[in-house]
Write a protein that binds this DNA or RNA. Structure first.
Lengths: 63, 63
DNA sequence: AGCTTAAGTAAAGTAAGCTTTACTTAATGA
DNA sequence: TCATTAAGTAAAGCTTACTTTACTTAAGCT
């Protein structure tokens, strides 16, 4: 599953560590999700959507 | 995380087993999600949203 | 050159999602 | 009354999400 986290971070000038902190996960988790190593849980996807003021579908894209 | 699966099933007269089959998961998985025992994975949430023609946010509600 | 910061990655472990098998309960109907 | 069907539940096991620790690489800066 692809996602727009890297771009959304870049627009806000946030590092992976910054985003991790805001979402209460580890930096490695953000890295792994951005690199497509695994998908976030649904609760984490919701948290990200709320953080960016977007819907889940705006951020995460089914393959 | 709450969800509207039971109502959406009822509107279509589908059993838990029917929905499970359409989503390629076991009947027990549907039961557990409906009863709030755990949240679906993000890919499964996407599949359900597409099946019902709704967004993830329409079906699954953050607590 | 040396320091710092961001990103990438990996191994080992815990927790959560999901499967299979199987038993139980309640409702319906022949 | 007996059989069937839908829902609920539970245990054991596998897979995936996530953590912690730690090492590496590349870029920017002094």
């Amino acid at each position: 599953m692809k996602n727009r986290l890297k771009v959304l971070r870049a627009e806000r000038d946030w590092t992976q560590a910054d985003l991790a902190e805001k979402l209460d996960v580890s930096r490695q988790t953000i890295n792994a999700i951005e690199k497509g190593k695994f998908d976030p849980s649904l609760p984490l996807a919701f948290k990200a959507a709320r953080l960016f003021g977007l819907t889940i579908e705006d951020i995460f894209l089914e393959e």
